[in-house]
């Protein structure tokens, strides 16, 4: 028994001359909620497609739930619920009939319990009332919910959710977040691909960041944040003065704006900063030591924030 739910070694995919995914070594511990981050086009979805065996890697390989893929796909995939690149259903069937079809296709599913499992999945994503409606009449949010329901038709050990809150209203987004929390509490491992950092900060235990096809960071969320240097932030109407004091004290990466100055603390004690500011007569309106937001960390890792990777 391995302690990794997803483990890839040098996973690489080339499309023609373009390297979409470049030697990715994913390590998703069992029980983790793993936030899979990256700008659009950074290779997240291609990686997920390889993990699920939809496309074959140019090089490298991976295990899901301790079994080698794609050789053991028939044994492993029934334990994996997946939402890949948005919902995909038959428009002229109702939501329930679409789930029925997927359940019928599953050779490990029991026909006897099919109805009950489908109802439970629909209920879990709040779609019971609209289950009989044709899929083509669904709103984007309802489609997304149905796709999540499809991933929950059977008890799963691993859920691979590619942008599950895409198209959901704030209420729906919160519901999905709660749902992911519940699934993790029930013991499932969740691989959550997203570009909503708020989502990651609230539900994820681990983070992997993709940039231009490479996995540029992968660690527990807490560690990623503590690795990042804290900054001292001074609210003042004399930002230039404050910045000068910070610089004298040895803070680095000083920044100033109309109403504040800030700098990376390094080894300097925050108390000393406050004392110096007061001593030099800088009018301090507020002072804070802040760990950089996940967004700052993310932008530092991927350079250009949310631009599309070329």
């Amino acid at each position: 028994m391995t302690d990794l739910a997803v483990a890839s070694q040098g996973l690489t995919k080339r499309f023609g001359s373009q390297v979409a995914v470049d030697a990715v070594d994913l390590a998703v511990p069992r029980g983790a909620v793993y936030g899979f981050l990256g700008p659009n086009g950074s290779g997240k979805t291609t990686t997920i497609r390889m993990l699920l065996g939809l496309i074959s890697p140019t090089a490298g390989g991976h295990d899901l739930l301790g079994a080698a893929m794609p050789d053991h796909a028939a044994d492993v995939l029934p334990h994996v619920g997946a939402l890949v690149e948005g919902p995909g259903f038959h428009p002229y069937l109702s939501g329930r009939d679409n789930l029925r079809r997927l359940d019928a296709a599953d050779r490990t599913a029991e026909a006897r319990t099919s109805g009950a499992r489908i109802d439970a999945a629909l209920d879990r994503v709040g779609l019971s009332a609209a289950a009989g409606k044709r899929y083509r009449l669904y709103s984007l949010g309802m489609k997304q919910r149905l796709a999540i329901a499809a991933a929950l038709l059977q008890p799963r050990q691993l859920l691979v959710l590619d942008e599950p809150t895409n198209g959901l209203d704030p209420q729906g987004t919160r519901e999905v977040r709660t749902l992911v929390g519940q699934l993790a509490a029930e013991g499932a491992t969740v691989l959550l691909s997203t570009h909503l950092l708020a989502e990651v900060e609230q539900v994820c235990t681990h983070v992997g960041v993709m940039h231009r096809g490479r996995l540029v960071a992968q660690e527990p969320l807490a560690q990623l944040r503590s690795d990042a240097a804290p900054r001292a932030r001074v609210l003042t109407d004399q930002p230039a003065e404050a910045a000068r004091v910070l610089r004298t004290l040895g803070l680095t990466e000083i920044a100033e704006s109309a109403s504040e100055a800030s700098g990376q603390l390094g080894a300097v004690a925050p108390e000393k900063v406050v004392a110096s500011l007061v001593h030099d007569g800088v009018a301090v309106r507020g002072f804070a030591v802040e760990a950089p937001s996940l967004e700052d960390v993310f932008v530092r890792l991927t350079g250009r924030g949310f631009d599309v990777s070329g």
Binding site: L52, G53, A74, L77, E85, A105, A150
Partner: peptide, 14 residues
């Protein structure tokens, strides 16, 4: 075309 192929294959349907 409808995107149902990827979901059938991940069910998995061989």
């Amino acid at each position: 075309n409808q995107g149902t192929l990827r979901y059938l294959l991940t069910v998995p349907v061989g």
